[in-house]
Computed example of a mutant assay.
Amino acid sequence: MERCIKALCNADVTQGFKIGRDVSLPETYVRSARNPLRDLGGKPPSKRHILAFYAGNLHGYFRPILLKHWKDKDPDMKIFGPMPPGVASKMNYIQHMKSSKYCICPKGYEVNSPRVVEAIFYECVPVVISDNFVPPFFEVLDWSAFSVILAEKEIPNLKTILASIPEEKYREMQLRVRKVQQHFLWHAKPVKYDLFYMTLHSIWYNRVFQVKPR
């Protein structure tokens, strides 16, 4: 395995992921084989009145810490635990993402989370909180341009950090989310620059730079 390029959703540098050799895959759902782009997009920045949103199961040690600090603590921070099952609840979850400036993407049992791609899907700036995580396609994408990446220890300062980002900078990041969105989308048949081709490109890129000239 040490001679192989591994393509992993769990791109954790403490669990054997090698930067410069291995490939970090986006963790995402295919919502509908016939229409994988269903519900794509979200509200424009001027109509996103929620500062930050998170809802999900309390996998791992870190998410309970997030809820301890922020659940029911601030009206600008819509931080919840698991949402009740059902179609109405799922639509409520989607509408929250479509209406939020920032979508919190905390680690669960592993360093990656499907919320990272969900946030991009709904044009919400992802806030990745996961130590030792290597973001997908980092070889070619500047994640600092369209996301906020925080250390786990910054949880108590989460609102202060997000609220201190100037509106102009937020709008720039949100625009860039919309621009990079094409790289995280599945299609029934692969489309140039989509997730399928980006994954192949990452493997090719790492393979090329491992080839030693004679």
Score class of each variant (00 low, 15 high):
2 E>A: 05
4 C>A: 12
5 I>P: 03
5 I>K: 01
7 A>K: 00
10 N>Q: 13
11 A>H: 09
12 D>F: 10
14 T>D: 07
15 Q>V: 00
16 G>D: 09
17 F>Y: 14
18 K>W: 02
20 G>D: 03
20 G>W: 04
21 R>I: 10
21 R>N: 09
22 D>T: 04
24 S>T: 10
24 S>N: 09
26 P>I: 11
27 E>L: 15
28 T>C: 14
29 Y>K: 08
32 S>M: 10
32 S>E: 08
33 A>F: 15
34 R>S: 12
34 R>E: 11
34 R>W: 06
35 N>W: 12
35 N>L: 07
40 L>I: 14
41 G>N: 06
43 K>V: 03
46 S>D: 06
48 R>K: 12
49 H>A: 07
50 I>E: 02
53 F>N: 03
53 F>M: 05
54 Y>T: 01
55 A>V: 03
57 N>R: 11
58 L>H: 05
62 F>Y: 13
62 F>I: 08
63 R>C: 10
64 P>T: 09
65 I>L: 10
65 I>S: 00
66 L>F: 02
67 L>Q: 07
77 M>L: 07
79 I>T: 04
81 G>F: 11
81 G>D: 06
83 M>F: 08
83 M>E: 08
88 A>W: 11
90 K>S: 08
98 K>Y: 04
100 S>C: 09
102 Y>F: 15
104 I>K: 00
105 C>H: 04
108 G>F: 07
110 E>Q: 14
111 V>D: 04
116 V>F: 03
118 E>H: 14
119 A>S: 15
119 A>D: 08
121 F>Y: 15
122 Y>S: 01
123 E>K: 12
125 V>I: 14
126 P>D: 10
129 I>Q: 01
129 I>F: 01
130 S>E: 05
131 D>V: 12
138 F>N: 05
139 E>D: 12
139 E>S: 04
140 V>H: 06
141 L>Q: 11
143 W>I: 11
146 F>W: 14
148 V>E: 09
149 I>D: 01
149 I>W: 03
150 L>W: 04
151 A>V: 00
151 A>T: 08
152 E>I: 08
154 E>Y: 01
157 N>I: 04
157 N>H: 14
158 L>F: 06
163 A>N: 07
169 K>M: 06
171 R>V: 11
175 L>K: 12
175 L>D: 12
180 V>R: 05
182 Q>W: 08
183 H>V: 05
191 V>E: 15
192 K>C: 14
193 Y>H: 12
196 F>I: 09
199 T>Y: 13
202 S>Q: 13
202 S>L: 07
203 I>L: 15
204 W>P: 00
204 W>Y: 12
204 W>L: 13
211 V>K: 03
212 K>F: 04
212 K>M: 06
212 K>C: 05
213 P>Y: 05
213 P>H: 07
